[in-house]
Design a binder for these strands. Structure first.
Length: 436
RNA sequence: GUGGAUGUAGUUCAGUGGUAGAGCACCAGAUUGUGGUUCUGGCUGUCGCGGGUUCAAAUCCCGUCAUCCACCCCA
């Protein structure tokens, strides 16, 4: 007989109880912070019609990096790779009856058919937070505050991460009005800029010159981009952008956003023209959150404004700002900064049936459970020390022994295995002790 | 998709051509109702899988699969 493998499917994770416990903690913080900002949770099927993802010329990506297959009815379905198309679909479907601005969040599991590497599997959870129907930069500001509170709630402080923002509409103005790039050049340029952080400086500028070599004002363009991309980082300000672009109208929102951040005491937001975000659907302000830890100095997650995605469903557009944060990267961040909490079991008591007392012991266990005390009941009748070892292994603080002697005297024996302290008392007193 | 490393007990790993090993973990006993130390005993293997070379392969060769790392990609 061939052995069945015990490993989970490639790129996907098993959540053993301790893993699930950690996940519950991570998600619990998300739920509580999102709720605190008035965001409501939603969910949707993990399968979507493939067409939903085919909108923006993403065919290459769909073919190679998704789980796409035919259902029994011959329909092409795709496991969701992100939540934004789904939530846009949902909002578009009920746009008339929803009260705007709409604040929604979700923690969907998503699947991408990727090649494996550190911090990236094929299955992940992603917190998605979106605000629909708000044109003013208060929406961006609110999400930045929410992100700050979220990371703060995990124990992080502002020195551990930076929020970098840029404006798509600003870059577009620079590309087309300032540099007069030819049509279609912006996508290539964006892609190159997106990779800037990952390549040596000389190589980047060599490729930049190569890319722009056939432009009319190639030299001037390279110079301007150089000065843009080497923008000095200054908190809550545009930095030292060249004067020729500084007064540009598209930067108005950005300045306003910085003012709002400053006023709310957030001091790690920077202007960074190298932030582009891969998505085509972003239209205006985009942002990314960077880990400042030297071993993980990279973008963790990000988001931005997409004002026209919902219009793809053939309805009037709804301005939207949102971000998505993956659980792998969050966990990496927390691990690296030593912010993962020590998790403790939910089980309060390990009750051990000693000898032939099953029914009477069960009655006591039931009484405890009726008081909302979490009790695991051990009826193995193994040696006492073994049961204590088991309880210890599970991280349970209390062990309660129920044997004939206790039943006769009515005095139960409760041991705290972390301190060694042992209490002999009646059931009521035991309950009081456990509830305190 | 490309390149590299690794694959031996539940786990971490040693073993470089000649009988398959150790620590930890697990089970049991020393101790018939009270843990963490100690001592004793025990269990666990198609040496990833398939083929080849050889008198003989965990070991050398080829293939394959899996894992990890880097690249490519990353909505």
């Amino acid at each position: 007989m061939t052995k069945l493998p015990t490993q989970p499917y490639k790129g996907a994770r098993d959540f053993y109880p301790e893993d699930k416990q950690l996940q519950n903690y991570l998600f619990g913080v998300m739920h509580s912070v999102c709720s605190r900002y008035g965001y409501e949770e939603y969910d949707a099927p993990i399968l979507e019609p493939t067409d939903l993802y085919l909108q923006k010329g993403n065919e290459e990506i769909i073919k190679e990096q998704t789980y796409t297959f035919e259902d029994r009815g011959g329909r092409s379905v795709t496991m969701r790779t992100e939540m934004t198309p789904t939530v846009s679909r949902m909002v578009a479907g009920k746009r008339q009856e929803l009260g705007y601005p709409l604040r929604w969040y979700s923690i969907p599991q998503c699947w991408r058919y990727e090649r494996m590497q550190r911090g990236r599997g094929r299955e992940f959870y992603q917190l998605n937070v979106d605000i629909f129907g708000e044109l003013f930069v208060s929406a961006e500001h609110e999400l930045i505050m929410l992100i700050s509170d979220l990371l703060k709630s995990y124990g992080a402080d502002e020195s551990m991460y930076e929020i970098h923002i840029n404006s798509r509409s600003f870059m577009k103005e620079v590309f087309f009005n300032r540099l007069a790039l030819s049509e279609g050049k912006d996508a290539d340029l964006n892609r190159l800029i997106d990779k800037k952080a990952k390549m040596p400086e000389e190589k980047f500028y060599a490729e930049l010159e190569e890319l722009l070599s056939d432009e009319d004002n190639s030299h001037e363009a390279v110079l301007l981009l150089k000065s843009l991309l080497s923008n000095r980082k200054t908190p809550n300000s545009l930095g030292d952008l060249p004067n020729e672009v500084l007064e540009h109208e598209s930067l108005g929102d950005v300045k306003q956003l910085f003012d709002l951040c400053k006023a709310s005491g957030i001091n790690n937001v920077f202007f960074n023209p190298a932030i582009t975000r891969g998505f085509d659907y972003y239209t205006d302000i985009v942002f990314e959150v960077f880990d400042t830890h030297p071993d993980n100095n990279r973008s963790m997650f990000g988001g931005g404004r997409y004002d026209s995605l919902i219009a793809d469903f053939g309805v009037e557009s709804v301005p939207t700002v949102g971000f998505g944060m993956g659980d792998h990267t969050l966990q990496n961040f927390l691990e690296l900064h030593n912010l993962l909490p020590e998790l403790t079991t939910q089980t309060d008591v390990y009750a051990v049936c000693v000898g032939d007392t099953y029914q009477a012991a069960l009655d006591i266990v039931t009484t405890l459970r009726e008081q909302n005390i979490n009790v695991a009941f051990d009826v193995s009748n193994r040696k006492i020390e073994k049961t204590i070892k088991t309880a210890e292994k599970k991280g349970i603080t209390y062990v309660l022994f129920v044997g004939q002697a206790e039943l006769d005297s009515g005095q139960l024996s409760l041991r705290n295995i972390k301190t060694g302290e042992e209490t002999e008392a009646g059931i009521d007193e035991i309950i009081q002790k456990l509830l305190s």
